[in-house]
Design a protein around this nucleic acid. Structure first.
Lengths: 188, 188
DNA sequence: CCAAAGTATTTTACGAGTAAAACATATGCT
DNA sequence: AGCATATGTTTTACTCGTAAAATACTTTGG
């Protein structure tokens, strides 16, 4: 919690490595804060601010191939969950799997079922629960879209060297694993 | 675009380093996809999926101190922009500064002005434009909240060693800088 | 000076997510 | 069996963001 931990001093390390690094907007914001509140440890901003901003930027571009297919990312995530698990899922399982609320899943399912991408089947034993599965059309849509989507993402990420991507993935995995360990239940 | 680029092979590298690494949910998802579509290069998922998931998780916890003050993160960002630039800003400048649409800024300003955190002043020369500034109350709120918020974020991030945080910040800065270079205009 | 075009901001209509309540059904206890 | 409680899902009321239209003002060029 002190202002002098192990992080490299902020405000001048914007370009590391080959000197090709542009200055990012978060660095500029942090610089402003530091000049207004010189005593503050702005370290967390440099991580969290950038994660948020990256997420926002990536989602804009990232979703381009999806939109061509008339799908939002949350919709694609839902279809993807059904595809990758390979079996039927109940609404609650889908909610857990896609990290969204039950109500949101209900709404998405309604639309996706109307579009014929997903089918609903009632449970014989417990008539409260529903089982959802992809229709053939839904399955083909996902299978056709995924390679496109991944190719697109590969292209977007190619601004980073492969080793950089690997390091980034590893660090994020570590952070994510521990954050999830704190709060998130580990799913079955 | 080939499946054999420089990234470490996915699916078994979940714990690196000291062996303390928990398995994160994205790793599990990627494993599922790989077993359904073995030919696919899932590299981008490991980066983008994790960035998105981290952003989501962080925002949940992150915003706790803010909520105590009755502020959403976008509201705090707006107040913060006014505080850190140190001068008045027009609605359009605020929109640029907080990466949100003009309409969203209008709405937030309305609420924040009603709450007495922000003041509006009309421009003498050009009567279309407004100039916004923090009230004393608004300024004190931001100044009181920021250290709390940063301390909280520091605590959340402390699941990563300081060097890890530094590396992560640097990699994200590089990614972000180049992504912004592609599309985003570099602001003044 | 006046009309046309441009710019800053707000308003409107709407889509999507959420929390909490409402339903519908199942399970446990006596 | 019968009632209380728990669980899975949907509905309701509401908030917030967005795109596009509307508004208000300014600038430009004849």
């Amino acid at each position: 919690m002190t202002a002098t931990n192990g992080r490299p001093a902020a405000g001048s390390d914007a370009d590391r490595g080959g000197g090709t690094g542009r200055d990012d907007t978060v660095a500029a914001v942090v610089r402003q804060w530091r000049s207004v509140h010189p005593g503050l440890d702005t370290g967390p901003m440099e991580v969290i601010g950038r994660i948020n901003r990256c997420a926002a930027l990536l989602q804009q571009s990232e979703d381009a191939p999806l939109r061509r297919a008339g799908l939002s990312r949350p919709e694609f995530d839902l279809l993807g969950a059904l595809r990758r698990t390979g079996h039927e899922l109940t609404p609650s399982e889908l909610a857990k799997e896609t990290f969204s609320s039950g109500a949101a899943v209900t709404k998405r399912l309604k639309q996706l079922t109307e579009r014929g991408l997903v089918e609903r089947r009632g449970d014989a034993r417990d008539r409260r629960v529903a089982h959802l599965r992809l229709t053939d059309v839904g399955r083909d849509l996902v299978d056709g879209l995924l390679p496109e989507q991944l190719a697109y993402e590969t292209a977007v990420l190619s601004v980073l060297a492969p080793e950089g991507q690997g390091e980034l993935a590893a660090l994020l995995a570590e952070l994510l694993g521990r954050l999830e360990g704190r709060t998130g239940a580990l799913r079955a």
